[in-house]
Each structure stands twice: as structure tokens, then as C-alpha cells.
Design a protein around this nucleic acid. Structure first.
Length: 518
RNA sequence: GGGGCGUUAGCUCAGCUGGUAGAGCAGCGGACUUUUAAUCCGUUUGUCGUGGGUUCGAUCCCCGCACGCCCUACCA
């Protein structure tokens, strides 16, 4: 009875805003312990006066190599802090494993080694600390008889009481939903998850470094756009109150980055989020990270070479090699990336089609319908070939492959080929059957660009909701003259998936988009 | 939008096409001064996702719904 009453009270304490709290007997027990700590410490239950001078990985690196006969006489004094992940109490002595951001280190806690005169009380308190508590220790390094580097603890403190139990210590967190929704828990218990996001960080810094080495200037352009542009996609719509105007979260930074090239920043890049109001899948998240860059006096051929080197550098920085394994299959980024035209890729991966068939619009239209896709009525030869490519070849492009010769009608911002006005100087990079990058020689003819925007507006009127808007200021910028340039966007999330051998984009985004919790 | 699989203790999972639920971990009590998921003894804990239906009786069978994962489609 009294037990039930007190746990009820505690739940109410935590619930002072009327927010629902999923209380259970484990949490109730821990709240009781915290209450006792608050009373015993006179209010400072969460002290912040401890500064560790070592981290776990540093200890292992610096002292892990010594035998105890060498280590013991050195009497290396260390102080460390972290989350208690394992605890083994054996009467008057105990072991605890503490985890910090670099790894784990074992503590050996024996009542006799504690220097404080209240050693008895400290040790008894420790016995009731829980897995997940954040603790601090000072002591001397030694090796156990099984050779594990450990700290012989002389001072021990509880810094932060953890109120919620961690997932089962051996199997860890198995529920995929909880891994995504409560990433903090996933990070606490999964070394693999931590490694993925450390790799992601390395990929991003390697890319930054690569861009800076190549004289690119990092810039930040608007995320709130009055006109969404730079890609064909449905935008998120929002409203600015003070100006009483509709705004859009950006679907791409392209048109702003090109304005900067007009302004004289000849090499610019931006690593930031794009937002697209579309479906979710293992390779789509409504907000995703793109590295987009523009370089004056370059073209799509230069871009392909450059992008290839950039991706290779990122893989090596994160994994130490460009020969990777993805989902059990070798993925080789070390060799020059293959280059195929759209038609060439169909011929290679779907050789049942003849040259004549691939240039017969009626045949192509019928063939595409067989895959359950209906091409736009106004789709020309190039668009039909592209649609067939997507149905037959795209998913088979495992090792890095550049697909080139995209038709003008689906590339409203790309420069047309000088030799064939129907196609553009554009490429998309495919790896593991997925689009990773998209780049082209930029269209810098303001009048041509204006005409292409008009064509897009017509398509929009004809029902193509994703056709682009007319951006008059962008045309005005081009009218000042943009130097010939190449530009490319690399999907960072998909690149990180590939490099970290992750099956889902959600595994490489810390807090992926989820339905609202019920 | 369609299909498949899943939802049982705080966590990881059992539960025989029907008789109102179990184990391990965690917790609590006890033993234990070199453990490694420590061990040993004892012990607490459940709206079986949710709403209906069938049945004397449903965690189990049927239908709906919610949420999740995967596939697929839409969306360039």
C-alpha cells in the first residue's frame, strides 16, 4: 500500500505539467533513490564540479601496452567519467565498466582502496547505483590478472542519476522504432550506431576539406525561398507573418549558388538540407543533406572527374579504403567510374532491345506502359528513353556509373550540347542502383533559360505539378552574365549509406522523419 | 494507395490454431575481494497494441483500426 502510494506521488512530481509519464516500477525505484540522494547531498544531486583528465580510448592507447609489472610501479593517477554500463558486485570488491565518448574502461572498486573516511558509506551507495548512471572516478591504473587495463578506484562519485533503465545489456536495443525515435538510447547502447555517425562526420569533413583544397568558398544560401527552384519536386509551404507572404522550404540551393557565380565567387559550395514534400522510403527522407558546388570555367566532363575524386576521398577518410562492401557485395570506388549514355546503359543492361526499338517513340511508350508507368503525353524520344532506362537499367548500376546525355526537356537548367541541341551536357551518378549525384554544364544563356522557364510554366499549366516556377530575379542575374560553369549536387545521406554499409537512409540520419507518436 | 511481417514484464524473447501467461536481463533481499553478459540462493513486476466478433471460455481464431519494419506503387 505505502509503496504504491509513494510511487504514485513520485509520478506526480515528474508530472507537474500534466504531461503523461510512462512510469513503471523500475523508474519508481530509481526516483526513490534520487530522492534519497537529494536529501543526502543537501540539494546538489547533480554536481558539476568534476573534470575528467582522461578518456577511455586514450588510456587504452597510452597504457594498454604495458604489463602490470611495468604499469603498477608507475602509479599512473587518472580521473575519468562516464556512463556505467556494466556492474559486478562481489562482496567487498566490485568491477564496473564505464563508457565515455571514446570507449569503455573498467573500474575496480574495493572498499579498502577508497581514501575517503566514509569509505563504507561510499561503497554501500555504489552498490545501489544503477546501470546508466553517470559516475566519476579517480585512481591508479593497473591490469587485472586477465590483462584488462583498469582503474583501481580511490575516489568515486555519482554525477547524474539515470531514472530510466537501459535496454538489456547483452542484446541491446532491438526495436527499430525506438532506435529512430529515441536515438539517444540507441547511441548509448550501440557501438555500431555511434560508428555510423562518426563515419558520417568524417565523410562531411573530408568533403569540406577536399572542396577547400580546390579553392572552393563555402557559403550559406537561403533555406526559406519565395520561389522554390533548382529541382523538380513538391515543396513544403510555410508562411512569414510579418511580411504576410507565402514561403517555401528550399528544394535545392542551385539558383542561389549560381547567383553567387554571377557575383564573382567563381567556386562555391554549400553543405545543407533540402526539403521535399514527397514520400518516404529507404532512400528518401523529407529533409536530406546535399553538397552542391559550382565552378566557373569548368564543364560536365571536369565535374565527373572531380566528383569521382571527391567521393573516393570521402570513402578513404571514413573507411580507410575505397574498396568497400555494401550489403554483402563488393563495391569498388577505387577504379575510374564507368560512363554510359542512357541508350548505352539500356543496351548494356537490357540487351533485348534493338537500336531501332530504342529510337521508336511508339515502341518505347508501349514498352514503358508494360512496367506500369505512364509517360507524359508530351514526352519526347529522350524522355521516353530515360523512362525505359529507369525501368530496366538503373537498379543494376552497382559499381559507380555516370549516365550522360540527358534530354533537354527534363533538364531545364542544364546547358544543351553544342553538337546536339536535344541533349544536355549532364550526368547522373549511380552507385548500388541509386542516384548519388547529379551535375551538368550550366545554362548561362539568360534568354534560353527564360525560354526554358516558360516551357516549364506551360508544363505546370498542363498538369505537371512539379514543373519549375519562373524565377525572374534569377533570369535578371543571368542577364548580368554568368561565366561558363559546371555544377553538381551530391546526396550526402545516400553517399554515407554506401560508405557505412547502411540499408536505410534512416540509419544515417540521427533523427529521421517519423509519424507523430500516438 | 496495395502487399508481407511484427506489436506479450522496464529490456530481449518463449507461449503447442482456445482453458485468464513464462524465461533471461534489469530491480529488490542475501552470499561472495580479480570479475568480463560475473556466479549462486530467494523475490517483485503484465490493460498480451487497440476496438469489435466467434466461443461456456480468446495472448491464440475472424474483422476493423493504430503504430513500426520491409517490398511495391505514387511522386521525377
Amino acid at each position: 500500500m505505502s509503496n504504491e502510494q509513494s510511487s504514485q506521488q513520485n509520478a506526480n512530481n515528474a508530472n507537474n505539467e500534466g504531461t503523461p509519464v510512462d512510469e513503471n516500477h523500475v523508474i519508481a525505484e530509481r526516483r526513490e533513490k534520487l530522492k534519497a540522494i537529494r536529501e543526502a547531498t543537501g540539494g546538489v544531486a547533480f554536481p558539476n564540479d568534476f573534470k575528467p583528465d582522461y578518456q577511455a580510448a586514450v588510456l587504452h592507447a597510452e597504457f594498454g601496452g604495458f604489463e602490470n609489472e611495468v604499469l603498477d610501479p608507475k602509479a599512473v593517477h587518472v580521473s575519468i567519467a562516464g556512463r556505467m554500463m556494466l556492474k559486478r558486485v562481489m562482496g567487498k570488491a566490485s568491477f564496473a565498466t564505464v563508457q565515455d565518448s571514446t570507449g569503455r574502461i573498467q573500474l575496480f572498486i574495493s572498499k579498502d582502496n577508497i581514501t575517503d573516511e566514509n569509505k563504507e558509506a561510499i561503497y554501500d551507495a555504489f552498490k545501489h547505483w544503477d546501470l546508466g548512471d553517470i559516475i566519476a572516478a579517480k585512481g591508479v591504473l593497473f591490469k587485472t590478472k586477465t590483462g584488462e587495463l583498469s582503474v583501481k578506484v580511490s575516489e568515486l562519485r555519482l554525477l547524474t542519476k539515470s531514472l530510466r533503465p537501459l535496454p538489456e545489456k547483452f542484446h541491446g536495443l532491438q526495436d527499430q522504432e525506438v532506435k529512430y525515435r529515441q536515438r539517444y538510447v540507441d547511441l548509448i547502447v550501440s557501438e555500431e550506431t555511434r560508428a555510423t555517425f562518426i563515419a558520417r562526420s568524417k565523410v562531411v569533413s573530408a568533403i569540406r576539406e577536399f572542396m577547400l583544397e580546390n579553392q572552393f568558398l563555402e557559403v550559406e544560401t537561403p533555406m526559406l525561398h519565395p520561389i522554390p527552384g533548382g529541382a523538380s519536386a513538391k515543396p513544403f509551404i510555410t508562411h512569414h507573418n510579418a511580411l504576410d507572404m507565402q514561403m517555401y522550404l528550399r528544394i535545392a540551393p542551385e539558383l542561389y549558388l549560381k547567383r553567387l557565380v554571377v557575383g564573382g565567387f567563381e567556386r562555391v559550395f554549400e553543405v545543407n538540407r533540402n526539403f521535399r514534400n514527397e514520400g518516404l522510403s529507404v532512400r528518401h527522407n523529407p529533409e536530406f543533406t546535399m553538397m552542391e558546388f559550382y565552378a566557373a570555367y569548368t564543364d560536365y566532363l571536369w565535374l565527373m572527374d572531380f566528383t569521382e575524386r571527391c567521393i573516393r576521398a570521402a570513402a578513404i577518410a571514413a573507411r580507410g579504403t575505397a574498396v568497400l562492401e555494401y550489403q554483402g557485395r563488393e563495391l569498388d570506388l577505387s577504379k575510374p567510374f564507368e560512363r554510359l549514355t542512357i541508350v548505352g546503359a539500356i543496351q548494356k543492361y537490357a540487351p533485348q532491345y534493338t537500336h531501332e526499338q530504342l529510337h521508336d517513340t511508339a515502341f518505347l511508350r508501349a514498352e514503358i506502359m508494360k512496367f506500369g508507368t505512364k509517360p507524359f503525353d508530351h514526352a519526347g524520344l529522350g524522355a521516353l528513353q530515360l523512362a525505359l532506362f529507369e525501368e530496366t537499367a538503373e537498379s543494376q548500376l552497382w559499381n559507380p556509373t555516370y549516365i550522360i546525355d540527358y534530354p533537354v526537356e527534363v533538364s531545364p537548367l542544364a546547358r544543351a550540347s553544342d553538337s546536339n541541341p536535344e541533349i544536355t551536357e549532364r550526368f547522373e551518378l549511380f552507385v548500388t542502383g541509386r542516384e548519388i549525384a547529379n551535375g551538368f554544364s550550366e545554362l548561362n544563356d539568360a534568354e534560353d533559360q527564360a525560354a526554358r522557364f516558360h516551357a516549364q510554366m506551360k508544363a505546370k499549366e498542363a498538369g505537371d505539378h512539379e514543373a519549375m516556377f519562373y524565377d525572374a530575379d534569377f533570369i535578371r542575374a543571368l542577364e548580368y552574365g554568368m561565366p561558363p560553369a559546371g555544377g553538381c549536387g551530391i546526396g550526402i545521406d545516400r553517399l554515407v549509406m554506401m560508405i557505412t554499409d547502411s540499408a536505410s537512409i534512416r540509419d544515417v540520419i540521427l533523427f529521421p522523419h517519423m509519424r507523430a507518436e500516438s
